[in-house]
């Protein structure tokens, strides 16, 4: 079967898993905080706030819809950024079905939106800017292979992160502790997604045929049989 057909199947599975229970349960306490950010404004989750203005936050379905869409679109983004399409399909299938991504991909928390931008940043580092404007945890999914090549962009992004989340005093960092980071599953969405991309890169190294060496043809003049 063609890879595109597999991609459509994976996309449908990802969409089904993320959309089927979208409004079955009421909002979680942190989702209610997000609704507050959209209604009153806040100096965090900037991009999700914009989605909140566009889609609205009146009903649970409206509130969660942009996040489920972004999480589903991340499957397409993964397929787009991973050069080896066989590897890409395997990674897409893992992302589509792993409970960590299904669960946090359908709640109104910033990880699904940041994840989409973070994956796209593996193709173009400028996508990391909206990812950072969504949540600083996006930095944990950096394309480390690209750091040297695009160091100017990454330096700018690092400064942007420091200004947005560490210099501005009204950003709530009270819940950032080693225990919460290690025990809270929501904090793992972006690092594990980054890990998948690193795995894809590594698997690509293994499966892609090695490029032929560019052998310079040297004219041999006067080759004499011994």
């Amino acid at each position: 079967m063609k890879p595109q057909y597999w991609l459509i199947i994976i996309l449908l599975v990802a969409g089904f898993l993320r959309f089927r229970h979208l409004s079955d349960y009421g909002l979680w306490v942190d989702e209610c905080l997000y609704v507050g950010y959209v209604q009153d404004g806040a100096s965090q989750e900037h991009i999700p706030q914009i989605f909140g203005y566009i889609f609205g936050v009146e009903t649970d379905l409206q509130t969660r819809l942009p996040f489920a869409i972004c999480s589903t679109l991340t499957v397409l983004a993964l397929y787009y950024v991973i050069p080896n399409k066989k590897t890409a399909l395997q990674i897409c299938a893992v992302f589509a079905t792993l409970p960590l991504f299904v669960w946090w991909g359908h709640l109104a928390r910033p990880y699904a939106i940041a994840g989409l931008f973070m994956v796209l940043a593996w193709r173009n580092p400028y996508w990391l800017i909206p990812a950072i404007l969504t949540t600083p945890i996006s930095l944990l999914g950096l394309n480390i292979y690209d750091l040297k090549k695009n160091w100017k962009v990454y330096t700018f992004i690092l400064i942007l992160t420091i200004v947005l989340y560490f210099i501005r005093s009204d950003y709530d960092r009270g819940h950032w502790s080693a225990t919460t980071i290690l025990t809270a599953t929501r904090w793992w969405y972006l690092p594990i997604l980054g890990l998948l991309l690193h795995c894809a890169k590594f698997m690509g190294f293994l499966t892609e045929p090695k490029p032929k060496k560019n052998v310079r043809r040297i004219p041999i003049v006067g080759l004499v049989k011994s």
Binding site: Y25, G26, D30, W103
Partner: peptide
């Protein structure tokens, strides 16, 4: 229900 998130039906 997953990890630290527990959704409860406050609408009732």
């Amino acid at each position: 229900m997953f990890g630290e998130s527990r959704l409860s039906d406050w609408s009732k």
